[in-house]
């Protein structure tokens, strides 16, 4: 993705789509389709993108989007891949696109099944950390301490965010990685690497949601950056569930979590105790991840 070579014509997305201003998911899919296109077919489960894609006969992408029911993404993707193979279209990259609900919650069974079968496609989860299309309800991707419409004041989301990449890595799939829109080249590298592999590949994209998170629409990139630099959403990749590797050179200088949470209204009334718990959780996960990375290096 060389910026100077990119233009409206060689992008796979059309202007005029229905995403909210500053939508991280719209941008993520822009990068995704640009990197994996043009020979690309997307199976899209119920999520914000079901709306962003537009009302037929209009469409927001220059590739086929096959809409499918909420829990079905993993399996529809399997079928689509195999169907295209049966029709001789072996070169087409198949992507399953799902939100965090369609990945962490209702879609987990089909996702796990497809991963276990090592289906030959790329599953992309754009994670806006709640059911945003229905108006910000708690999902199992919602971080501890956040306020949602199913955890309104004085409640807050209890229990920590599900570690989906660890779950996917436990399936020993060829490739799993995290990415954010603040690091498009990192994301591009991961998509490119994934594209060349066979088998099940999983990419988890943090996707800031201005209306849901209560952030300025202009902060989407900054939030993604802070999520990475604070360690709340580290950028890494896992090959065959074994080789863990960090992909950003930020390991040693993490920014305070408060900087990241401070500009999100969903964390507006977070008290120091909860902030401490959340920071400890992030620290713990971070150490766990670093440990895996170190072990991987030894294994090499």
């Amino acid at each position: 993705m060389k910026i100077e070579e990119m233009n409206r014509e060689n992008e796979m997305i059309y202007s005029g789509h229905s995403a909210c201003p500053g939508c991280g998911a719209a941008l993520a899919v822009r990068f995704l389709t640009k990197t994996l296109g043009p020979n690309l077919a997307i199976a899209l489960t119920a999520s914000c993108w079901s709306i962003i894609a537009g009302v037929p006969p209009l469409t927001a992408l220059k590739c086929p989007i096959l809409h499918c029911p909420f829990p079905s993404a993993g399996s529809v993707g399997s079928g689509l891949r195999r169907g295209l193979n049966a029709k001789g279209m072996l070169d087409t990259t198949v992507v399953v696109l799902a939100g965090d609900g369609g990945t962490f919650d209702i879609g987990l069974q089909a996702l796990s099944g497809a991963a276990q079968r090592n289906e030959d496609y790329i599953f992309v989860c754009y994670d806006n950390e709640a059911y945003m299309n229905t108006g910000m309800q708690t999902s199992s991707a919602t971080p501890f301490g956040a306020r949602t419409n199913t955890a309104p004041y004085p409640l807050f989301k209890e229990g920590q965010k599900k570690d989906i990449v660890q779950i996917m890595a436990a399936h020993s799939i060829p490739y799993a990685a995290t990415a954010t829109v603040a690091f498009p080249e990192d994301m591009e590298n991961k998509f490119k690497f994934a594209k060349e592999l066979k088998g099940f590949r999983f990419i988890h994209i943090l996707s800031p949601c201005p209306p849901g998170w209560g952030t300025e629409s202009s902060d989407t990139i900054e939030l993604s950056r802070l999520a990475v630099s604070s360690g709340a959403f580290p950028l890494f990749e896992v090959k065959y569930g074994m080789e863990w590797r960090m992909t950003t050179p930020l390991e040693d200088k993490r920014t305070p979590l408060g900087d990241y949470l401070g500009i999100q209204r969903r964390f507006k009334d977070i008290d120091s105790e909860r902030l401490k718990i959340l920071q400890e959780e992030v620290n713990y996960e971070w150490e766990l991840l670093q440990d895996k990375v170190r072990r991987s290096e030894i294994l090499k």
Binding site: Y14, S15, H17, P57, L58, T59, A60
Partner: peptide, 19 residues
């Protein structure tokens, strides 16, 4: 009828009006 086979660019929607 093309209802379920949308292939026309969504760019007919001038979303600049939201601004």
């Amino acid at each position: 009828k093309g209802y379920s086979f949308g292939n026309e660019p969504i760019s007919v929607n001038k979303t600049g009006e939201w601004r």
